[in-house]
């Protein structure tokens, strides 16, 4: 029997929750939407050719038709950032999506089937989880080398354990609940139980980890390209622009500040949206 106090408390929290219309969440959603628009049409939105050099206007502060000034070679910073959105964001999105597909499936299957394979995968995930992923990526990509998609693959491999662990432990809770036993008793097939019964109930975790994986990969990509790894220096990305701008911070501060702010704002928006979405979905699961 559920205690009165607990259920009443939950109701109290529900009321508290409904009152907070998440203006911030809406803003974060709009930010991410804007970033996505830049990913799709950044090159087209750019006011100038992002690779057009002009040695006369090297590292200029904003002005002269350059809203954010120019870089060392006289290229328009705003245009470079807009068109750089694609290489800065597509990779992380692929990493997060890959994590979602592979990690969630492995995590749920592991929780449902258990057994030796699950134990092995879990041990491995635990081990990789305890290692500094970004540093490994830096070392591997720095020493062995590799282009954009190798970077995506390395980051995907390094973020998978996180996704597997979270999805597995969330699915573990569900798998032990009687509704899964009931589904098995009725004779529903294992994969159908996993995708139709378990997945909708761990959706809050899946959505939140998708966004967190995205944030991790976004920051990872930016860090790598800041160090000159992953993204070829010729193609614009937020990380490379940031690196170029640091030495020119007195001439055109916007060259480094703008990409730094872009990274922070995008990452924070996604984190907040993940956090909020998790709470919302988790809440919707229990109260309706």
């Amino acid at each position: 029997m559920t205690s009165d106090v607990r259920s009443d408390q939950a109701e109290g929290a529900a009321i508290d929750h409904l009152q907070r219309v998440p203006v911030v969440a809406v803003i974060c959603g709009l930010v991410l939407l804007a970033v996505l628009v830049c990913v799709v049409a950044g090159g087209w939105l750019a006011p100038q050719d992002p690779s057009a050099q002009n040695p006369l206007l090297s590292a200029m502060a904003p002005g002269h038709g350059h809203l954010l000034g120019t870089d060392e070679l006289g290229r328009d910073v705003l245009s470079r950032l807009l068109s750089g959105a694609r290489s800065s964001v597509v990779g992380p999105l692929v990493v997060a999506a890959g994590c979602l597909l592979i990690g969630a499936t492995l995590g749920m299957a592991g929780a449902y089937f258990g057994g030796v394979v699950d134990t092995a995968v879990n041990r491995l995930a635990d081990m990789v989880y305890a290692l500094p992923a970004l540093l490994i990526a830096i070392v591997v990509l720095g020493v062995v080398g590799g282009g954009y998609w190798i970077t995506v693959a390395v980051l995907l491999l390094l973020s998978l354990p996180y996704e597997i662990r979270l999805c597995r432990s969330a699915a573990m809770v569900e798998v032990r609940l009687p509704y899964v036993d009931a589904a098995r008793t009725i004779g529903i097939s294992a994969w159908r139980i996993i995708f139709r019964h378990v997945l909708p109930n761990i959706l809050p975790t899946v959505v939140a980890t998708f966004l967190l994986d995205f944030v991790g990969a976004l920051v990872g990509f930016a860090a790598l390209s800041y160090l000159g790894l992953g993204v070829p220096p010729s193609s614009p990305s937020w990380g490379t622009t940031l690196a170029e701008g640091q030495s020119l911070i007195t001439q055109n501060p916007w060259l480094s500040i703008a990409p730094a702010v872009l990274i922070i704002v995008t990452a924070s928006s996604a984190t907040l949206l993940g956090d909020w979405g998790h709470e919302l979905l988790a809440h919707a699961g229990t109260q309706r």
Binding site: P178, T185, I186, H197, P200
Partner: peptide, 17 residues
């Protein structure tokens, strides 16, 4: 042949369906 009714009706139905 055999089916079951479980103890806790709060968790024996899938809340998502």
């Amino acid at each position: 042949i055999v089916q079951a009714v479980f103890q806790d009706p709060y968790t024996s139905l899938n809340p998502a369906l």
